[in-house]
Design a binder for these strands. Structure first.
Lengths: 327, 327
DNA sequence: TTGTAGGCGTTATCAC
DNA sequence: GTGATAACGCCTACAA
């Protein structure tokens, strides 16, 4: 493979001069620059990035680590990568499949200098073991975490969730069921708390949260729809933890003969294409901005350059799966 | 940062010995191995992978390049990464957004040794410029391409598509409309040809293909459904290029009052969760195996180790969006 | 404005 | 079995 020496030889200069031309630093006369550029073109030369990395101590590569890549994770991956590319960084992905060792492998790459930083979407190891690695490079996470060393782009779903509940109330719903996701997640905890506040405020009927927990995919939504079908005394409305669940519910309910927005109301969460496709009211929040912020946090720590973080707001996207407001 | 010299010093041996211990090659006595391992543990040492890469001339990293990452592309990404991880490779992703330069940037990384190989999902540049890069490392693609140097894991949709058409015919449909995807794609060409054969065989009515071309997302499916609604003389059935299109059609048609499998028949393609969710008959083929094969092709060229490729078969997944067969 | 030379951290080929 | 030592390809003081 052609290297910097070959260029130096052909251009009849030293390798140092060639390096200066390539990196555009240090003095080099117009004429020699021309000759060197010519030689580079002639031999079709491009610097060996392994050598550059070794010398500079950075690979300009950031890892994105998750238990798996579905739904929102793929959107985050996409936005994060696009943002990283703008600054000349590459993104390499790590799927842990809930395997602690695999997550550690990725973390070790930070230590072995293969990665400059890590965006950890959904973790598997305990926080204290993950924190051990921040001394090797910046780690940013999506999870909510109280850590002095690991910043998070987590956004509290409190506001968004309340937005949905209020909308249901204003449109006349009085018996609302929550479809929660992961049992242990802090989001679920938040939702349970918010729902209690909400039912207290309007003196509404509450329900046992444990009956509708760990629902995350479209299949879980379909299961909930079949439950709905069997009830003698049916609830007014469903508040879902994700669009996937809402979509699964709506699709299955449709086959059972129930029309969303008429026979019952339902609200999703995330505003991905599923809710748009099935005309489901949902809560929107900027997933892409979350990813952009994650990159900026890492970039800041890497370069000391400040990059402003965008603030993230929830928005209710009103569609056909809920009734219009009562005035 | 602690390096191999530090270990050598602490263990009172030379760096060469330490290297032997780490790489498990060459002779080293049980006792010294013990001492060295001890020192490594004590200083929490891990080899700098940049230096290893430089020395060995490989980064154990493969790039996956696509215009974007949606739908099937994310499944391919996922399966490919899982397979690569098994052999100790990392995968870094490149989104070109149809920008030729961005695709070239990724290709250049092969040249600059940052990547050992590339899996090119959806290309942007012409094949002859892409072929220039195979001398720097293996490139495998998903597209169908007649190239001596770029192998493809493409599978001819002929069989799968015919499977769908025959099913429609056997269940009584006589006026069938095709919803094609990308105008220039070879898959579309294949489909148009197969459809002609099919209509000739059964002496059925054909239709102008250009009317239903470039349909790829759920929105395009919805548009087609609205067209269907407006027709005085309606077709029996729709054969779609993807589940996304079929799903968009079914969802929109539902809101317009048409029930799939009753008022019309429709078949998707890909068998992703969308078709399962909306109970749409579809054509299944193993996307994951395609990705696995892609990795194996790259791996073979990188290591000279043979890895058997799996054969890929189409399968009709019969669901509620088509009528039962007539006996 | 340009060249020399040392070093980034590792591996591999020699000797011993 | 083990230890010097020369690469791998590049960057960057420091000299000239």
């Amino acid at each position: 493979m052609t290297n910097i020496q070959d260029i130096a030889q052909l251009a009849k200069v030293s390798s140092a001069t060639v390096s200066r031309v390539i990196n555009k630093n240090g003095y080099v006369s117009k004429e020699t620059k021309r000759i060197v550029d010519q030689a580079i073109k002639e031999l079709d030369y491009v610097p060996n990035s392994q050598a550059v990395s070794l010398k500079k101590g950075s690979t300009k590569t950031i890892g994105i680590v998750s238990t798996d890549f579905f739904d929102t994770a793929t959107f985050l991956l996409r936005s994060f990568t696009l943002e990283a590319q703008k600054e000349g960084y590459s993104v390499t992905i790590f799927i842990t499949s809930h395997d602690k060792q695999k997550e550690l492998d990725a973390l070790e790459m930070l230590k072995s200098k293969q990665l400059d930083g890590i965006f950890l979407l959904y973790r598997t190891n305990e926080w204290d073991v993950i924190e051990q690695y921040v001394k090797y490079g910046p780690i940013v996470t999506l999870n909510r975490v109280e850590s002095a060393v690991i910043p998070s782009v987590y956004i509290d779903q409190y506001q968004g969730y309340l937005l949905g509940l209020e909308h249901l109330y204003q449109s006349g719903c009085r018996k609302i069921i929550n479809l929660y996701s992961s049992e242990l997640g802090l989001n679920t905890q938040t939702r349970i708390a918010v729902f209690k506040e909400f039912t207290d405020k309007y003196a509404l009927e509450s329900h046992d949260p444990t009956l509708f927990i760990n629902l995350s995919g479209t299949k879980d939504g379909a299961t909930a729809a079949r439950w709905f079908d069997l009830q003698a005394e049916k609830p007014d409305a469903f508040m879902c933890a994700s669009d996937s669940v809402a979509a699964g519910f709506v699709a299955e309910a449709m086959y059972l003969g129930y029309v969303a927005g008429k026979d019952y109301s339902i609200i999703g969460f995330d505003n991905i294409f599923l809710s748009e496709m099935l005309d489901i009211t949902t809560i929107d929040y900027p997933v892409d901005l979350q990813a952009v912020n994650a990159f900026h946090l890492i970039y800041q720590r890497l370069t000391k350059k400040e990059q402003p973080l965008q603030s993230l707001d929830f928005k209710l996207i009103q569609r056909g799966s809920t009734k219009p407001l009562i005035h």
